[in-house]
Design a protein around this nucleic acid. Structure first.
Length: 267
DNA sequence: ATGGTTGAGCGTCAA
């Protein structure tokens, strides 16, 4: 049995709902993890999503900001017992267990704070929050017994490798690629995950999942960053089959500034 | 150094 897991910062679930058939046609995901749904749970468009072939839904949303959701073709149960990261109650994490051949698979969907514009935690509370968030997640996962059969996806808002940004030199002081962020993210990953997408795309190759809205021609300037990630526990390494980064989605009508990323796991 | 664009929801704030 193979499971295709996709992640997408949808930047408003209700506005981008008409794009989901395009995503499904292109990727045929079994599970779709969303970030920045920007919809309160009471207004979650569950019926529309069930009609698209995802009967099993989990979501954690709030009005206007943040919000994560997991859409699944297979049954899921929501996992609890996780911290309210940084004590803010701001709907940035959801975890589920998916029943699969050979045992369950645990799946985490994260939306890491963007961190604002100024890369100084003293001057910018949003950047301080971002660093605190990744320190907290890192400490939490480090304290877990060794995880297995676990996938972690999401908009982690950090481009960790030199070729995860269009210019390592020019972005060294820009939020998303500063040393405290890239080192913090690497330390979090090192608590028990490997970078699933980079198993298929060599680190020497540029690879992006996000292009700013503020470019006249995003494809021509290609000033992208790889902010969206799929991590897996090392036991799943032999089960990873492919990765798809759906760059064409950046040209969809009313595109998100992030494109979907999917990984297939043979379980 | 600055500005550029989008979304939520009607002020700006967040990204």
């Amino acid at each position: 049995m193979s499971l295709r897991i996709a992640t997408w910062n949808i930047n408003s679930l209700r506005l981008r709902l008409p794009r989901l058939p395009d995503l499904i046609a292109a990727l045929a995901p079994d599970v779709l993890c969303l970030q920045e749904t920007k919809v309160a749970d009471a207004l979650f468009p569950a019926e529309d999503l069930r009609a698209l072939g995802f009967p099993h839904l989990a979501h954690r949303g709030m009005k206007g900001y943040n919000g994560v959701a997991i859409l699944s073709r297979r049954p899921v149960t929501v996992l609890d017992g996780f911290p309210d990261w940084c004590g803010k109650g701001d709907c940035r994490h959801l975890a589920v267990r998916i029943e699969a051949e050979g045992g369950p698979l645990d799946l985490h969907d994260f939306y890491v704070p963007a961190g604002g514009d100024v890369a100084d935690p003293e001057a910018n509370p949003k950047f301080a929050h971002k660093l605190a968030f990744i320190a907290e997640t890192r400490a939490f996962f480090a304290a877990q017994p060794r995880l297995a059969r676990t996938i972690l996806v999401g908009d982690l808002n950090i481009a960790p490798l030199e070729n995860d940004v269009w210019s390592h030199r020019q972005l060294r002081d820009v939020v998303s690629h500063t040393p405290p962020e890239t080192e913090g993210l690497a330390a979090w990953m090192a608590t028990g995950f490997i970078d699933a997408v980079r198993q298929f795309v060599p680190a020497a190759e540029k690879h992006f999942t996000w292009w700013s809205y503020r470019n006249r021609d995003w494809r021509a300037s290609d000033r992208g960053r790889r902010l969206d990630h799929v991590w897996a526990t090392p036991d799943l390494l032999p089960a990873l089959r492919d990765q798809i980064t759906l760059k064409d989605a950046r040209d969809w009508p009313q595109a998100s500034d992030h494109v979907p990323v999917a990984v297939t796991v043979a379980l």
